[in-house]
Write a protein that binds this DNA or RNA. Structure first.
Length: 707
RNA sequence: GCCGGUGUGGUGGAACUGGCAGACGCGCCGGACUCAAAAUCCGGUGAGGGCAACCUCGUGUGGGUUCGAUUCCCACCACCGGCACCA
């Protein structure tokens, strides 16, 4: 009688076996080499999607492989459980965020188990539990002590109708993603983490991220955006004010023919008398792509050549970068060039290609774009004749000696704003006291528990504001009347250190140094490339902060990073009914109206475009092994994977074949799966099977080790 | 504009880091089983030529290094991704 392959039966048997024998429990013993294998933990949105299947299938292969190679493997899983969707569900459906979240976790956990993933669930982490987030608060207090957490006023995206701050990602075409009303910039007091203190180290560390994909490292470098230059003062003629500018090209100082200020530059308030006009101009310049400018009626003095040059407000100058003011050198900067052409300002060349004979640049008549390359200085006083790179160095020294400027390093990286005017997050452990000001909560009073008996009106504003019991608190310093902070932390705080929490057992202290130094850093991290800057940069920052607190010994959290590609699928559209699920078409026609279906582009699976496959259906129909095999087999892990029903069937047939080869084999030894002690007694067909098996082991080993 | 990546049959993609290009899967063609179909199994499948053993060409394009290049070097083309008035 032939044995048939029934995946559901086989998988259930082994999943039961694994769970009864606690196969994947992390070994406390430290004899063997450790291997920390981690996949990015999911947000408990309700159901897993194909992206999860792919991510976790890849990680599971590595974890199982390392176990078989004799490593002591830590392979944990958890939940990034704070966040907006839970709160939105509360507003929409009246279910408490905690209930919504925990129910989702429960369901998704059964899904992950059905996939046959080898996790040590004893170390499960749920970021919305007080046991977890108390450490967010503890880190916050420690960072506050060190000046790494601070409060300042800053501009944020604000939706009037929802009465809340929005993250940049939640502003779509300048409108609120939820109510589609206009988003404005509002100045609010916000908490920040001083990530910029580590900017240099985070940048230098990029050179040592050998196990990371180059594009991710490049994105990190780009995001940090270091540039060297000088800051220099331009006194304003007839006043006591000075404009401080930043430039990376001090070698072009003699070519500066005007100054531009950002619309938000503070000096404008002092220099411009007509405030009405000023505000009009600001409004006009705010959202324009054009290069707009306006002369403000003042002149500034270039302290290199004592020349008087006009001062403009300009739409293209950013307040957030440098000093919010620039010297404009139209001959050597394309933007300045365009601006100068538009407003008929002088263009003076001070750098020319080295091959040119000296002096030619001086009477260079025709120029149709800025010359931005390196070259030789002309018309530049005592620096004429120097190469531009040398001139930058010499001029930098010169202005420092003369006390008219200084050499500086600038970063694009901004401090990390962590305040959220939301309920479902970690309460920021701070109390405001009339007498003492900002007072941190005492360590022994942690955690500041997020109250659960709140009402969700959807009107905006944190529901915590309606809770006097939470709000009113004695000042820890003077005992007087205090008020709690109602802002919560950005959920990226939760995920910036969760990999450290896994190192110790659930019942142990989260920061048991022995365990952390044993397991950290993560040997292999796997997740989507969409976190290339945010999560991965914050985690690198947190790792360094924890190192400086003496909790960690490594500089970097993740030795090797694998960013898996997206799972994609063709989109289908009906002219009448819009996007269609694959199940809504038959014979190339829409099931609802019979119109011919338009086949669209292959795009990332998304619910809104209905080009999705539900892992539940897949597992019910073909089994978990087929799902896992397909997602590993259809494309290399780093690349995008295009969904193909045929491909899934192929994977299923393949497993069928393997099953048949083993269970319907003529050899008893093969069939029973007993250990082959004597190769020579096997029949020749069994011998070739054993040989093939070993060849396969070798190939798989090579493939995984090479990654 | 700046940074990064990719380019191999009809198709998804392999090729042990310079050594028989196209593994494995999908599709297609032929055969077996069947009254028939599905499923399954066996064989074939880069292009051109030859009855045949075989021969010639072939990894985006053009050059180079080498006994030998999909792999290394130079230039170019195309596509994809990230950032972007960053001074």
């Amino acid at each position: 009688m032939e044995e048939r392959y029934i995946p559901q039966k086989v998988e259930l048997k082994w999943q039961r076996y694994w769970s009864e024998n606690t196969q994947f429990k992390t070994d406390a013993g430290t004899e063997r080499d450790k291997f920390y294998c981690l996949e990015m933990f999911p947000y408990p949105s309700g159901k897993i999607h194909m992206g999860h299947v792919r991510n976790y299938a890849i990680g599971d292969v590595i974890a199982r492989y390392k176990r078989m190679r004799g490593c002591n493997v830590l392979h944990p899983m958890g939940w990034d459980a704070f966040g907006l969707p839970a709160e939105n569900a509360a507003i929409k459906e009246g279910v408490h965020p905690a209930q919504w979240t925990y129910e989702n976790i429960q369901y998704m956990k059964t899904q992950l188990n059905r996939m046959g993933l080898s996790y040590d669930w004893d170390r499960e982490v749920t970021t919305c539990s007080p046991e977890y987030y108390r450490w967010n608060q503890w880190f916050f207090l420690k960072m506050f002590e060190r000046g790494l957490a601070y409060k300042k006023s800053s501009f944020v995206n604000w939706c009037r109708s929802c009465a809340t701050v929005l993250a940049n990602e939640q502003v779509i075409d300048g409108k609120c993603w939820r109510c589609e009303s206009e988003v404005i910039q509002k100045e609010l007091d916000q908490w920040f983490f001083r990530i910029t203190r580590y900017a240099d180290e985070l940048l230098e560390g990029c050179d040592r991220l050998k196990g990371w994909p180059e594009n991710v490292v490049a994105m990190q470098r780009n995001w940090i955006g270091r540039s060297e230059g000088v800051e220099m003062d331009f006194p304003i003629d007839g006043t006591n004010e000075k404009i401080r500018i930043f430039t990376t090209r001090p070698d072009t100082l003699w070519g500066a023919t005007f100054i531009c200020l950002a619309t938000g530059h503070p000096l404008l308030e002092k220099l411009v008398i007509d405030k009405k006009k000023l505000n009009e101009v600001r409004a006009k310049f705010e959202n324009t792509e054009e290069k707009e400018g306006l002369f403000i009626g003042h002149y500034a003095i270039n302290q290199m050549n004592h020349e008087k040059i006009p001062v403009y407000i300009a739409s293209f100058v950013l307040m957030e970068y440098g000093t919010g003011a620039i010297m404009s050198v139209p001959a050597h900067d394309q933007r300045d060039y365009e601006f100068a052409m538009k407003y008929n300002l002088p263009i003076r060349s001070v750098i020319q290609p080295e091959q040119w004979p000296a002096g030619e640049g001086a009477n260079q008549a025709v120029m149709n774009e800025a010359y931005e390359d390196e070259g030789m200085l002309v018309n530049s006083g005592q620096f004429t004749g120097l190469k531009s790179a040398d001139a930058r160095r010499e001029i930098g020294k010169y202005i420092e000696e003369k006390g008219i400027g200084k050499r500086v390093i600038n970063y694009k990286l901004r401090d990390w704003g962590i305040s959220r005017q939301r309920y479902w997050g970690t309460p920021i452990p701070v109390i405001y006291c009339k007498g003492c000001g900002i007072v941190p909560v005492n360590e022994e009073d942690l955690p500041v528990v997020l109250p659960e008996d709140v009402k969700f009106t959807g009107k905006g504003g944190s529901p915590l504001l309606d809770l006097p019991d939470f709000l009113r608190v004695a000042c820890p310093r003077c005992g007087g009347e205090g008020r709690r902070e109602t802002d919560t932390m950005d959920t990226f705080v939760d995920s910036s250190w969760y990999f450290v929490r896994y190192c110790s057992g659930r019942d142990e202290d989260a920061l048991t140094k022995k365990h952390i130094s044993y397991w950290m850093p993560v040997n292999q991290y796997i997740g989507g490339v969409e976190h290339a800057v945010l999560h991965l940069l914050y985690s690198r920052f947190f790792t360094r902060v924890l190192r400086d607190m003496g909790i960690l010994t490594s500089d970097e959290p993740f030795n090797n990073l694998l960013t898996q590609g997206m799972v994609c699928m063709e989109t289908l559209k009906c002219p009448e009914h819009g996007w269609l699920f694959p199940s809504e078409i038959k014979d190339e026609k829409c099931l609802h109206c019979g119109s011919p279906v338009l086949r669209g582009r292959v795009e990332k699976m998304s619910k809104s475009k209905k080009n999705v496959v539900d892992p539940d259906h897949l597992i019910n129909r073909y089994g978990a092994d087929t799902s896992r095999l397909f997602s590993l087999f259809a494309a290399p892990p780093q690349k995008d994977l295009e969904w193909s029903e045929k491909g899934v069937e192929g994977a299923y047939r393949f497993l069928n074949k393997v099953w048949g080869i083993v269970y319907n084999n003529k050899s008893n030894m093969i069939r029973s799966g007993s250990r082959i002690n004597k190769f020579s007694v096997l029949q020749s067909s069994a011998q070739s099977l054993v040989r093939k098996n070993h060849q396969t082991i070798r190939r798989v080993t090579n493939d995984i080790e090479r990654e």
